[in-house]
Amino acid sequence: MHAHNTHVETLAGKIEELTSQSVMQCYQCGKCSAGCPVRNYMEDSPNQVIRYVQLGFDDEALHSSTPWLCASCLTCSSRCPQNFDIAKFMDAVREVALEMEIDVKEKDVKKFHEAFLNQIKKNGKAFEFGMVREYKLKTLNLFQDVELFPEMLLKGKLSLLPHKKKDIKHIKKVFDEIK
């Protein structure tokens, strides 16, 4: 029996299952936080989020904005002296938070990802205009970057119609699997 089965109900257990690494690997040296490019925007440092999970403060971890501010740049993972993949850990925290329908603080980031994935689901390819349109409607953040759009359109960098993948059934299968 794998050890994680005994604590699979805890966040630590779920994360171990999703990432195949134990949160206890982290010895809290803080190197991840020290090198994180978005550290200044976070309330909790990355190592603190890991600490929450280590100690079983699952709510604190799931409600923290830190995983949502993570830019997935992998600086932390590549410098971790314990070979703990912090970025993967953050991926897993977000995944569990979504699954548990936690009311996350960083709603815009969540909506951005949803809008992006919806385009893939529909078209098989990312459709930037469609994604931005959907994101703006969701966030009501209507005027951000409006100054850039005309130029983008003019330069052919923003297509108004999606590029579609012809055969979409495999994409559907993958999305169905995570329902």
Binding site: I171, F175, E177
Partner: peptide
């Protein structure tokens, strides 16, 4: 031929299976 999106940041930021699944196609 008829390639599809790799899932980009949004997939692996929210669902591990989705990110690997999309890229694998």
């Amino acid at each position: 031929n008829d390639w599809s999106c790799c899932g980009a940041t949004s997939a692996h930021a929210t669902n591990h299976f989705l990110s690997i699944g999309l890229s694998s196609l």
